[in-house]
Design a protein around this nucleic acid. Structure first.
Length: 291
DNA sequence: TCCTCGAATCC
DNA sequence: CCACCTTTCGAGGA
């Protein structure tokens, strides 16, 4: 069933659910929303590191979400974010999975590597070529070779993740650093009317979201995906933060002009993104500029 | 250190 | 499972 959901509906539900989740976290800061319907909660203190108590908390959350919003959800409980995220994916929908510290290895080892959170199609293929199929294979693999293939930071991450190690704290993230939107053209084209009118819609949408968050931006990126699926991006950083819709429109247009002039292939999708977001606050004190 | 741009992941 | 979209990451140049 496809529901033409009125704008803002998901956001409203999300807000309510997040409020419930937040209320079960150890503290105001022990909460990390990761998407419209997912969050990490640190409950170490509330359950006194007892995983049976943690399960009780998980059950209460499920009941409350069901009662308040009539929604099911999946809960994963583990010693860190990596494991709890994977535990929550383990039984879906409406599941609850607890992975105790001593169970982590058995939980991970049999899994194909692509189940590890953070490994997608490309990494999976490279690993397959290296003869690494399961998490156990990855855990046993020579770290130096992983670093040679994936680079230092990703290579070491792979090995740590395979062992179920993740020390990243549960922490409210500074709401995203960038706001962007892409869309397909009705047909592959480089007709200026069609391209510019879609570009304007996207820019408006991005601007709406920036305004809702009361942020300005200092960089603008325009993306074009061509008929052959090749992607090109062009970005420009302005000298001062901007809050002006017209500036976004003009800048995006100018950059799109470049693509129209410098290329010959039809466009399939285009996108607009703003970055270097900057809160519009009152007068900043000198301390705000200390690095 | 900043900027640009493509790669990669996740939704 | 696929197709599509959003955001982040990181390499390399200035």
């Amino acid at each position: 069933v496809f529901l033409p959901v009125r704008k803002g509906f998901y956001e409203e539900v999300s807000k309510n659910v997040m409020a419930i989740l937040h209320s079960y976290a150890d503290s105001e800061e022990a909460f990390e929303r990761t998407s419209i319907d997912e969050a990490f909660l640190d409950v170490t203190r509330s359950c006194n590191s007892d995983f049976d108590l943690a399960r009780e908390i998980g059950m209460r959350i499920k009941e409350e979400v069901k009662g308040q919003e009539n929604l099911t959800c999946s809960v994963g409980i583990g010693p860190n974010k990596l494991i709890s995220k994977m535990a929550s994916s383990f039984r879906k929908p409406d599941g609850i999975t607890v992975v105790r510290p001593e169970e982590v290895k058995d939980f991970l080892r049999p899994m194909p590597v692509n189940k590890l959170w953070g490994i997608g199609k490309v990494t999976e293929e490279k690993l397959t070529e290296m003869g690494i199929r399961t998490v156990a294979d990855l855990e046993g693999h020579d770290i130096q070779e992983l670093i040679n293939v994936f680079g230092k930071s990703r290579g070491t991450w792979l090995r740590q993740a395979a062992s179920g190690i993740d020390e990243t704290p549960v922490k409210e993230r500074n709401a995203s650093d960038q706001i962007g939107r892409m869309a397909s053209l009705k047909q592959d084209t480089r007709n200026e009317q069609m391209v510019f009118s879609l570009l304007a819609e996207l820019a408006d949408d991005v601007m709406d979201r920036a305004q809702a968050r009361k942020v300005g931006f200092r960089s603008v990126t325009v993306t074009v995906i061509f008929s052959n699926f090749k992607t090109s991006t062009k970005s420009r950083t302005l000298s001062h933060p901007v809050y002006d819709r017209q500036v976004l429109h003009d800048t995006a247009r100018e950059m799109m002009r470049h693509f129209l002039d410098e290329t010959s292939m039809n466009f399939r999708r285009i996108g607009v993104m703003v970055g270097n977001l900057n809160e519009r606050t009152g007068q900043k004190s000198l301390f705000d500029f200390e690095g």
